[in-house]
Design a binder for these strands. Sequence first.
DNA 1: AGCACGCCGACT
DNA 2: GTCGGCGTGCTC
Length: 603
Amino acid sequence: MDRGASIARVAVDSPLPRLDRLFDYRVPPSLAADARPGVRVRMPVRSAGRVMDGWIVELAERSEFGGELSELESIVSPVPVLSPAVWALARRAADRAAGVASDILRLAIPKRAARVETAHLAAAPPAREPVTPVAVTGYGNAALEDAVRGGDRLALRGIPAPEAWTTTLAQLASVVLAEGRGAIIAVPDLRDVERVVPVLGRTLGAGRVVRLDAEQAPADRYRSFLRAATEDGLAVVGTRSVVYAPVRRLGLIAMWDEGDPLYQEPLAPGVHARDAALLRQELEGCALVLLAHSPSTDVERLVEVGWCRPVPFAGTAPAVIPTALQLGDDRLAEQARIPSTAWRAASEALRHGPVLVQVARPGEDAPVGSVRTASELGRAFPNARVVVADGERRVLQVGPEPALVIATRGAEPVAEGGYRAVLLLDGDRMLARESLRVAEDALRTWSNAAALAAPGARVFLVGVSGRIAAAMSTWRQPAFIAEELAERRAARFPPAVRTATITGSADAVEAALAALAEIGLAGDDVLPTALIDDATVRAIVRFDYGRGADVARVLRGEILRRSAGRRPTARSRPNAPELRVRMDDLEPFTGEGTLRRGRRIEG
DNA sequence: AGCACGCCGACT
DNA sequence: GTCGGCGTGCTC
């Protein structure tokens, strides 16, 4: 503790909006030695007796608070777990989402495991070889190494070859690690973590790679977390909440397939990992690489406003052939809803190696389910080995030998040497979903599957035509996405605008809308209020990005007002918060997500 | 969340 | 008069 600093400014570990600010405490002499920014503390809140957890955010010599200060009760552990950078990020992210910083910190700081901590404190810092920077290949003379060193923001097109993205991420990370800085590598799901970790290990050295994801055992997760917080020059890899990892001297945040809906955080306040990454890049000045075969409309918007720079790959696009669903004379093909040209190509390819068949849904029940498709194709190709890969049957990889691999989208195994043919079935079904994001989502998942094809292998996109099929066959997804964004802009739909979904009692929602009207948010940008049930209504407002801070501030004020208001009484139902706010719901106009039950999605 | 403060109906 | 109902507000 600094000489003379006898005041600790503490963030309270509580989801209550009223406690979402810093509180000053006196540091008693007995705790002074360990009272450092970032440590977890316990302190009395409201007239002795009640003790809460929190973190010291900063130390000060004097307090602005007029009243009598209480003393910190104890320091839970001398290990700093909340870095100034992560605190700043949590504050920014919560403010932007009209939420509470400690809700973000819940994602950022894993539960303490005392034994892990003891072992960590006892261990000597590991001796490691310096990292050798590896050239970033496949992008011509784009000078990506300099861009990354210079803290640029890039929308990078993935190289369309099996697992090329893992190599690109490892090469990018090597550039910053070679300078003694750290990198955050975010991927959508655990399968992707498992794929990228060995590649990073080979490129950077195994001791340089740290896994950090919510599915780890608590002790493992805390061990990884402590390593990230204390060692320089690490690549920290994980799923969406890895963007909050306490990486030291952060030089790069790289995100694979940023359009994957798994990056949307379901826990309050529902901050998308991409948005958190953008905020963190701004705060820390590190490089940001959004790597994808087919970017989201959100990233296209960032490109168009000049916030990040698109970088194409230099190489050959997959051979994608849109195939109308004109059924031929083959009855078996007809059963399996595969056009005869694609059928013949698949039969031929199957003599040489694995063939991927992407379907929309898992299981046997759906007319298009993975298991049902597998049995149909199994009958048609009695000599072929059939592999089913979906959410339940996880298959990471298949060998180079012939096999029919039936996979739901996102669950496709990687084939050694690449698939000899890829059939994208059920495209029409995927596009029939009612969602603002069907088109970009379909394009993204088709593109990811197409990139698994061997060099020169053909990819058949079945039953899809028009501009979206053309985007696939020309491999010019960004052009289609740009048109998609233009349509959203014309309609004032996200991500051309931001949205806030306001749910609660009719009173509370009405008051919130009135408060928004006072800052000029009215007219067409306030969508008609919908009745959810007898006690709940929902309003949606939309607004330009420049107004986001104002809207969030006003709505936060309303939440604060209302949270002090009505309590669960006999009259009102218990646990029904009077006012909940969700900013930038992925599907604001269909209500998907907004009403999801379970953990809080509220303000 | 808890706990204190404060302003209206039945009581010694 | 005053005890205590719970509506309202605050937590360094």
